[in-house]
Design a protein around this nucleic acid. Structure first.
Lengths: 234, 234
DNA sequence: ACGATCCGGAGGGCCTGTCTCCACTTATGA
DNA sequence: TCATAAGTGGAGACAGGCCCTCCGGATCGT
């Protein structure tokens, strides 16, 4: 929706090249979330299914890749905030929706760290960031005014809890389970954000109720898979 | 409280050596939490205020250091669970207390990862781990039986939320603020765990209500401090 | 004070990640 | 279908960081 970035309008980029670029961006988002901002670029290109040269051709250095990832994430979350504000009638529902959707963007966790490496003062980043901030603040204000959201919760609390929930749990946990657990735990948290309300009104939490044994099983199963992979039948 | 580990009973270790060992262990705990299990050992020794050789003298390799860190953490949290169960009369209060105390141990976050590197099957580790597990399960069962804790929350939910809260927030945030925020957010979560209850009974959350501007200020202040440190007046 | 114990940090070696170069493959348009 | 420009991938030189050891010197205990 904004093809005319800086110099990228010169030539429209061939079809396969465009596809590769998108795959690299997606892989970068995942890898940065999982391994932090210092993750090997080779890992990113590998996961994107491209060669390392392709990554470097599209993004001359690490910072330019980070920059693209951050802008992409900021655009998505800002859009979610705008949509939640516009489409939800209940203020608290708007907040809950925004939080769940932002969790799906799966990137909140690294934005602070990435932002620390690239210049926070870049015009474009600051612009998008501020816009998202304004929307979220409006959502929070509305939810508190309506009485649904406890008044002692701040913008920063919401943001920081999203960061905590966005980070994948450490250890060998499959990605999809990780995501569903995050939403389950968000439900748990949201219920705590809500001002009062009788027992009956308390909604059920979503997602799987994992047991300790489940986690143990998963660990040993994944470990077995790992070792059989690194030690092929020779 | 258990000097007779394996071979460490041979000679009682000189006073300064003992002190250094403890400092290394504490530093290792912090660094592993902040940077993950692959953190440079040099960083650990540096933060402990000792030379790198001292670390290697006490812990021949990385795994043995991890092992010591994990055992120490397991012992502490198990003790907290035992004490909470024994000393608190209200079951839900016992749970809340256990969670806050465990947060102070500041290590839950890495145990899964560390456990993944060292053998989970080691006799001593398994023994302590199981003991802690039993205590916590008792606390949860009691809290649910008493009706204070929502019944759809599992042992794993509690453990995983503690992990999420234990990890330091990314970005340049001072350690003490980080800790206080973790407790604040735990309060927020706990309130969500509680079954029902009228508005008035809802306790205030502890800790500072940080604003967005606070975080921004902090960022630029720390950045300034960093650059003045790496660029001394030449 | 003297011997045993312990310490710090320099530095060699290794491993890992970055980034470039070029022969090869694929898309596009006539 | 074919010519050509655009795009690709992976080997490998290079650099930087981390691991771990060694030994002259400091410190503790008696």
């Amino acid at each position: 929706m904004e093809e005319t970035r800086t110099a990228e309008r010169a030539r429209p980029l061939r079809a396969d090249a465009r596809r590769n670029r998108a795959q690299i961006l997606a892989a970068a988002r995942d890898v940065f979330v999982e391994q932090g901002p210092g993750a090997p670029l080779e890992e990113i290109s590998r996961r994107a299914g491209t060669g390392i040269a392709t990554l470097y051709r599209r993004f001359p250095d690490r910072r330019s890749l980070m920059r693209a990832v951050v802008i992409d994430a900021l655009e998505r979350t800002t859009e979610e905030a705008r949509a939640a504000l516009a489409e939800e009638t209940d203020a608290f529902a708007a907040l809950a929706r925004y939080m769940h959707r932002t969790l799906d963007v799966r990137i909140a966790a690294v934005i602070p760290t990435l932002l620390d490496e690239i210049s926070m003062n870049e015009e474009e980043i600051r612009r998008i960031g501020d816009e998202g901030t304004r929307y979220l603040q409006q959502i929070i204000d509305a939810a508190q005014a309506a009485g649904g959201l406890r008044p002692d919760v701040t913008f920063a609390d919401i943001g920081m809890m999203l960061i905590r929930l966005s980070r994948p749990l450490p250890g060998p946990i499959p990605r999809d389970l990780n995501d569903r657990l995050a939403h389950r735990h968000l439900d748990l948290l949201i219920d705590g954000l809500r001002t009062g309300g009788p027992d009956a009104a308390r909604p059920a939490v979503a997602g799987p109720a994992v047991t300790l044994d489940d986690l143990r099983d998963m660990r040993s199963r994944l470990r077995a898979a790992d070792s059989s992979e690194s030690t092929p039948p020779d």
